[in-house]
Design a binder for these strands. Structure first.
Length: 231
DNA sequence: AACCAGGACGTGA
DNA sequence: TCACGTCATGGT
């Protein structure tokens, strides 16, 4: 029989989420939606898709993916899913295109920053430290970009992760980002697909049960996940 | 009609 | 370091 280790516990939670929600197939690209690329983890396939993920990671900050996706389509309509275009386009047009995500004044600046950064990469993979230097890229966004755009096994911690695992009493709710990140990375096998799916599943699960206004917290899916103990 | 969403940054203590 | 205000649209 398995030992009750944190690794077993975290993997049990992951398996249970997978059973209930199936693979999410993140990151959602414009060309490859619903159900995205479930089962195919070869994406992104080119520089354009890598860049699209970087834009999306910034656009979706503190807003819904629905709004971020809407903004990406508006940018696509302007042929602006390209760093050169993001840098060349006028301010009014850029802000107008990303209006749906809110914070458009800030995010317009951030999109140009990340565009400049992307061009300077010249196809290389950025370090986490370098990404964090970019204005508009905080810890979560940096990890999202590394995990989904550059296929680096960096565990992403978001508000849902914090609330969900604090609720399970596995982490301290006021622990710093890096502490929570290290908790997962130290008790989980370092596997890209696992990291990608785990974060995506936490978001899917968190939307319902670990938002600031949770709902349905007594239905079976919620119970199944919250009552897990490794066996 | 407040409240929240797949955060990050700037400021003052 | 840390707590807090700010950014802003769209859905509930």
């Amino acid at each position: 029989m398995k030992q009750i280790t944190l690794e077993n516990h975290l993997l049990s939670i992951f398996e249970t989420l997978m059973q209930h929600y199936n693979a999410q197939g993140w990151w959602p690209l414009l060309q490859n939606r619903e159900p995205y690329h479930c089962g195919d983890y070869s994406y992104p396939h080119n520089e354009s898709e890598i860049f699209e993920i970087m834009l999306g990671a910034i656009l979706t900050q503190n807003t819904t993916w629905k709004q971020a996706e809407k903004s990406l389509y508006r940018l696509a309509a302007l042929e602006a899913i390209k760093p050169e275009k993001i840098l060349a386009i006028d301010d009014i047009s850029l802000k107008e295109a990303i209006k749906p995500v809110g914070y458009f004044n800030q995010k317009a600046v951030y999109l140009r920053e990340i565009s400049r950064f992307f061009l300077d990469l010249k196809g290389s993979t950025p370090s986490r430290k370098a990404l964090l230097q970019v204005k508009g890229v905080g810890e979560e966004t940096a990890d999202c970009i590394l995990l989904y755009a550059f296929k680096q096994p960096e565990f992403v911690v978001d508000a849902y992760t914090r609330r969900m695992f604090a609720s399970l009493e596995l982490i301290d709710p006021k622990a710093k980002y890096g502490e929570i990140k290290r908790f997962f990375e130290s008790h989980l096998p370092v596997e890209l697909i696992l990291y990608q799916e785990y974060h995506a599943l936490i978001v899917q699960h968190g939307k319902r049960y670990f938002s600031k206004k949770p709902y349905g917290t007594n239905d079976p899916i919620f119970s199944a996940v919250t009552t897990i103990f490794p066996n």
